[in-house]
Design a protein around this nucleic acid. Structure first.
Lengths: 203, 203, 203, 203
DNA sequence: GATGAATGAGGATTCATTCAT
DNA sequence: TATGAATGAATCCTCATTCAT
């Protein structure tokens, strides 16, 4: 009794958009149904519950994300290149799954504790491990500064990237790659102009 | 209601903590009351509504924030020093009003549109103006890089700072000033180590 | 513990006014307290409950009314004079207890069934008996028409009088006696102009 | 909500009955639901709120009333015939909408001031205008007495008619037309018997 | 696949009332 | 006498969910 997976995908897209805009709790099933052009009760032909829609949206996003991240991490790039590749992958993900990312950002804190969403905590731990490893090996290799608290740096990079989902608009002025490039430039080199030397190089 | 604004403050602090932890919508009035040690109905002796508690929490935080920001902006510091002072002020604010800041971050997007919370949109505009001016004059003065989209830089700095409220713990390892210092170091100089070697690779 | 009966009377007057204006159910104890210039809880020093205020207002009015009615009925007037005297007494009562009368009109229907307000049903029965007796003996004596359903006539006269409480303003253009005179004139002689003969008599 | 306005009508009828019996404020939504045989929450599938049920009941009644009144007023009858027709129409309306009329009588005073029920005040003004015009032209034409305050007469007739809703029982001893006839007889000619004897006494 | 109608478990809010001070 | 703070029951309303058609 799960035919027409395209319909499900359509509906999930609508739901994700509404969840992202209004917040999960503040979103009523009826609003989703309105936006999708059917009645609230009819959604239950496609989904078990409001929660299962959320579940599907979030796990779909995380599956995609891990596919990309794992690909990057499997390549065996150096720390700096890894960081650049991960950030770029993240912005591509934001471009594809903007709504899901926004939901993840806003809700995962409260969701994490529910058994059903335990995979969110799990994902967070894996993400942290991957990033920390990258940053630490970068510090060891001389790619990254060593005078910074690695955990703080991790949070800095992480937040910097994901918060973008709250304002990024797919199809806007900058492509995900271009946005990634600018972000990386800030994260890696800072916003301050350092010295004549650097200026000269740039020009 | 003259002689006991302390009670209100106590209750608001409890409410802010719960709102921050569970999200405004997911928080029931009963949970706040439980946490404060009275019955749900009794809260209405002190406050008009759940919404008015939220209102008071947010506007109290913003008032405080503007007091600090205005003090900084009135000093007439140079762009870089202004940026440093604003960031430090922000972390101090996070230290004092952690819960309020977390709520602001999570909810202001949806709240902005309600007439009652119009001041949130207003505050955001004022903040953006203040930051943009600082960044632009820093670019003109040679303090900051000129090859970055100022708007992007603004968001980068803004998000970077405020998101900290979601993990910052007052009384933790780092004081707000110390946290600010590290953050500024990252924002201004980047996380990459600058040596001849890396530069060469880039070119 | 029932000192200062003047204070009670003051408060009851305020309460009656508010009950009459807003309806008993829609009136909150707090509104009465506001109007009287004290706090809601303080009313409970003077009265047992909101209901007991209502009780006191209504029974006070009915006691007064019966005093007047009994005086009229004891005089042994003829039916027409009795009717005139009762109507006049009623308008005097409206003049004195406007609020109480309005409350009585609006609420007694629902109150009647509660044991505490059983005296309202009782009073209604006594009133009906007194009026019916008067109307019937008037019909027998040739004072009143005999082609009308007495019960209908009773309701007609009764409603005609008491409904006035909803718009009558003490101290207005007409004195209670003047108002009574006009009402009586309508009730007894009708609003239609009958014939030349009558016209002549009047002039 | 297209295919089942009958359900709405059923429910409104039940609600009107309960409102009339208990008073609007004293009526709980649960009581209406009980009387209608469903759960309280289910009423909200059909109506926005308790208030909107009241609204629909009252405006439905007034629409009907104006249809009848306008038909009468458009006919161009003489003042006395107009008055008779209006009164008869009113009793027919009471027969059809007894509950609504009772509610209107009891609650419109407090409702009038709320913006949502502004049409009640409006209706009252229109009613007053229609009646006053009729009474005045009747006084001018010699149909009605000229020694009475027209406003008082208006109130007399109005109250006399509408208060009947509080005791009238559809399907009772008298048809609406019969009740109207008797009422008109009293209003127009009075309850006193006019003979030489009484007249002499008076003079 | 979808509708229309209902369920039932809350949730915010109101309010009469109490009571220590 | 009055206040300030609280209680607790009741009320209106919302909303995810169900199910016969």
């Amino acid at each position: 009794m799960r035919p027409a997976p395209e319909r499900r995908r359509e509906l999930l897209e609508v739901a994700a958009e509404v969840f992202a805009a209004q917040g999960y709790d503040a979103t009523t099933v009826r609003r989703i149904a309105d936006a999708a052009g059917l009645l609230a009760g009819s959604l239950y032909y496609h989904f078990d519950s409001k929660e299962s829609m959320l579940d599907e949206i979030l796990s779909g996003f995380l599956d995609d994300l891990w596919t990309r991240y794992d690909a990057v991490l499997a390549t065996g790039l150096g720390p700096r290149e890894t960081l650049e590749a991960l950030v770029t992958a993240s912005f591509r993900e934001i471009d594809r799954h903007r709504a899901a990312v926004a939901i993840y950002q806003k809700e995962s804190g409260q969701l994490r504790d529910q058994p059903r969403f335990g995979y969110l905590a799990e994902a967070q731990r894996r993400l942290e491990r991957a990033w920390l490893r990258t940053l630490e090996s970068g510090a060891a290799s001389g790619d990254f500064r060593t005078d910074l608290d690695v955990r703080l740096t991790y949070r800095f990079v992480r937040d910097t990237v994901w918060v973008a989902a709250s304002w990024y608009r797919p199809g806007g002025r900058h492509s995900p790659e271009e946005t990634a490039r600018q972000y990386l430039s800030m994260v890696l080199d800072g916003v301050a102009l350092r010295d004549r030397h650097r200026r000269t190089n740039k020009e």
